[in-house]
């Protein structure tokens, strides 16, 4: 079922050219040498493989957390809180058991459960998933900040949580993430449940006609999405930060960035592997642009923003038009 679509490649290439062209204009207007800025961005962004892979891991997984539900027609903006609960439960399980495997499993399950909760509220109580997710994001942000600073603070380093014990720290987290992406790809395109999710996402009425319930697919996709984000949180803590600081700076924002990564990867798990790498490189490189050129960090952020928008907008626009079209024809 793998095949290459010329239109798609062309679109991404065009977006890329436009993105960097717009970026160049922004740089020139602000008085920076675009060649220098870009070369620093790419040299440092993609120069440190270990860093790049670690940085990409949670982003890849929150990208999946957005895209798998998106394929089934749900807008999962809750990758953020699903990653939080994955991170905190994995940390605590590792803390108590001293081993990684139960921590990964329980962290993943926690994310999945949270995703399922949001979906269940939509399916059974007709509560908009975006609103639920936004509220839960903040609820869990503060709850975890409380846990980390009040209940599980590291007595030696009070601004951090208890650390992951050395025996529970793991490496190679990026490959676990890639494996997850490939598994999701397989599920979506080679299994009945994946097929049903895809049909439900594009046309719930067709799903109903075919005799399966789009609501059930909403639940399934949010379960899978939440599991990905939860796994992302677990891997982040067990394989990169080993702790959560009281300002939550290590885990904050990854779920939101995941939305952009999902769109950039065209909601395709394999595409998301690459979009997460691409985006992580930009984020990493952006820090060095500040160091090397003296430009404020906002410059790199702006540049990344412009690039992501140019890459994601045509796709997001088409998705939106499709939704509007569906609604129009249903009326």
């Amino acid at each position: 079922m793998l095949s290459v679509d010329r239109e798609s490649i062309l679109e991404v290439l065009m977006s890329l050219i436009i993105a960097f062209a717009v970026g160049t204009v922004v740089l020139v207007v602000l008085g920076y040498d675009p060649i220098r800025v870009y070369s620093i961005l790419f040299k440092y962004g993609y120069g440190n493989t270990d860093y790049l892979l670690k940085k990409s891991t949670p982003l890849l997984l929150t990208g999946l957390a957005f895209s798998v539900p998106a394929i089934a027609g749900v807008f999962n903006i809750g990758g953020e809180s699903q990653l939080y609960v994955g991170a905190i439960t994995a940390l605590l399980v590792a803390h108590y058991t001293g081993s990684a495997i139960p921590a990964v499993i329980i962290g993943t399950a926690a994310g999945a459960l949270l995703g399922l909760t949001i979906a269940a509220l939509r399916v059974y109580r007709n509560i908009n998933e975006v609103i639920t997710a936004i509220m839960l994001n903040w609820t869990f942000f503060y709850f975890i900040a409380y846990l980390v600073s009040a209940k599980y603070a590291n007595p030696k380093v009070p601004h951090e949580s208890v650390p992951v014990p050395p025996g529970a720290r793991i490496g190679g987290i990026f490959f676990i993430a890639v494996l997850t992406a490939l598994t999701y790809y397989y599920v979506l395109h080679f299994t009945e449940i994946g097929y049903k999710m895809r049909v439900s996402g594009v046309s719930p009425q067709s799903a109903r006609y075919a005799g399966f319930s789009p609501e059930k697919m909403v639940l399934t996709s949010m379960l899978l999405g939440g599991a990905a984000a939860g796994l992302g949180g677990a891997l982040l803590v067990l394989g990169a930060t080993y702790t959560i600081d009281t300002t939550l700076s290590a885990i904050y924002g990854i779920g939101f960035t995941g939305i952009g990564i999902g769109l950039l990867g065209r909601n395709n798990p394999v595409g998301i592997i690459f979009s997460s790498l691409f985006m992580s490189g930009l984020i990493i490189g952006g820090q060095w642009v500040e160091l090397k050129t003296g430009a404020p960090p906002e410059l790199a952020d702006t540049l990344i923003g412009v690039i992501v928008i140019a890459l994601a907008v045509p796709y997001a626009y088409r998705l939106l038009m499709k939704k509007v079209g569906q609604r129009g024809s249903a009326a």
């Binding site: 079922m1 290459v4 290439l13 040299k43 120069g47 065209r266 395709n268 595409g271 790498l277």
Partner: peptide, 25 residues
Amino acid sequence: MRKGGIALALIGLVVMAMASGCIGG
């Protein structure tokens, strides 16, 4: 839809090649 991913993959590789090409100091 899944074709987009392949496209991105190619671009990712191009970008990384570009990046490693312009290392200097």
